[in-house]
Amino acid sequence: MNRFDCMEVLSAQLKDELVILSLGGSVDEWYNAAPHMRKASLFQQQLGCVTPQAFGLAVGLPHRRIVSLDTDGGMLFNLGILATLGNEQPENLFVVVWDNECYQSIGGPPTHTAAQRVDIAAIARGSGVKEAHVATDLATFEEHCRKGLAAREPYIVVAKVTSTVRRDIRRKHSDGREDKYIFVRHVEETENIVIMGPSEHN
């Protein structure tokens, strides 16, 4: 299964959700696979932070569906978040773990899932996230996206994808700061709230 194909399948199901995603090749892929979600996606270069940030966003906006696009390397960096999700049971958080069994962005050395003994979905279930599944084909992935985006409990799908990266796509040029402003202004506009307001004059 190919990550870009999975992204296109997921993208087709998204409308007013907010997305936080992980580092590496998936950034440019998501930028192209979901052009209508660019402002609604926070592109972060932060191993181990993606699902915790998405959970914090889900806590702050309980009426809004939040999607975390995490990775095997990112999730293994901070497995504790699975236990926190198990305890807190957020009703509006869908987590996709792109599991390509390697640290693809630095050339592909294996992660701990490569030896076929470590199962992130099983770890999630053992942490109290009942709806934690593995998808190895596109139809199964699509079905989990449909269920995960409608679930009233934390829902995780570990997508077993190849380590290939789409190279024939447009690169995203913005950095983390610009991405944050774009994302925050989108949240402000769609939620009719102020997050980063005007400065005081005193």
Binding site: L57, G60, N78, I195
Partner: peptide, 19 residues
């Protein structure tokens, strides 16, 4: 309650993004 403070920092960052 979090499992380590780094996770807590990241969750707080997400809360900031929610307003």
């Amino acid at each position: 309650p979090v499992t380590n403070e780094g996770e807590g920092a990241a969750i707080c960052g997400g809360v900031f993004l929610s307003g």
